[in-house]
Every structure is written in C-alpha cells, then in structure tokens.
C-alpha cells in the first residue's frame, strides 16, 4: 500500500501500468483519476489551491486504504493526492486498486474515493471570475460514503 501527498504533477498512465508491474497474480486493475474542471456551480474556474492538514492527511488516507484491504481481497493499492496550486485539466487524484478479479477492484476503488471525499482533510479554494471561493462540501458525497 502506498499513500502519496505531493505538489508535483503525475502521469496517470504510468500510475495505472505500475499497478500491474511484475505481479502476474493481478487479474484486474481499476484506476480512478480526478481532474480539475474549468467550471463549478455555475462559474468558470481558472484554477484552484488545495489546502491540507499535513500529518493527518497521510494518516487519514492510510486508514481508508487499510479499511478497503479488510473488506476486499486486494493485491495492491495506491492513493496519490496533489496539494497546492492546480490548473484546469490537471490531474488532482489517483486511486489504483489491483486484485485477482475485477469486482473487488471496482468496489474498493469506489469505496476509497467515497471515503476520501468525506474523511481526508483536503480543501479546495477555486479562482473564479467572481473572485476566490472555498468549495462547499456536498450532501451527495456524504450519501455516497454512507452506502458502504
């Protein structure tokens, strides 16, 4: 299991390929990539800043991964989340899950993202034509996390 919180950009394709690496027991890899959009809640978004809680962020992500590993038979899990200034089109987050069969990988990846969105201490501040604004938490994200 690996959890990375970094400012640097990453290559989603390389991350997905690394999930398989030399492990021929891996039959399924599911990778989720989240990107910065150029719009949100009716406004154009020129960029955003990702704030986080150093120390707690890594612990919170690791805890989510451990819970996923307890629920599904997983062979490898990677969670990578960026912080700092980001522009539209840039990848923000990568969650990769490898398992022997697809269902565990699909479900675990979905679970990790739902929990990340509601339990990992990150906050987005968008730059819009109306000035900077903090992104508000969504009830739909709480509902999604409640399914598990």
């Amino acid at each position: 299991m690996a959890v990375r919180v970094q400012q640097a950009a990453f290559d989603p394709g390389a991350e997905v390929n690394a999930m398989h690496a030399a492990n021929v027991g891996v039959g399924a890899v599911v990778g989720f990539v989240g990107y910065v959009r150029d719009f949100n809640d009716g406004l154009d978004v020129a960029g955003m800043f990702l704030e986080h809680y150093p120390g707690m962020t890594e612990k919170a992500l690791a805890k989510i991964v451990v819970e996923a590993e307890q629920r599904w038979p997983l062979l490898k899990v990677e969670v990578l989340h960026r912080i700092g200034a980001l522009e539209p089109g840039e990848p923000i987050v990568f969650v990769g899950v490898a398992s022997a069969h697809r269902q565990a990988a699909f479900d675990a990846c979905n679970f990790i993202m739902d929990y990340l969105k509601t339990r990992a201490p990150f906050w987005k501040k968008e730059s819009t034509q109306d000035g900077p604004r903090w992104v508000e938490g969504k009830q739909s994200d709480q509902d999604a996390a409640g399914r598990w």
């Binding site: 989340h81 923000i92 990340l116 969105k117 990150f122 508000e136």
Partner: peptide
C-alpha cells in the same frame, strides 16, 4: 485539536 469545514478533496 483541529476544527475545519467539511472536507472537499478528490
């Protein structure tokens, strides 16, 4: 201790 608004990562 830390206080913060709902998280919005991902």
């Amino acid at each position: 201790i830390a206080f913060f608004p709902p998280v919005t990562g991902g």
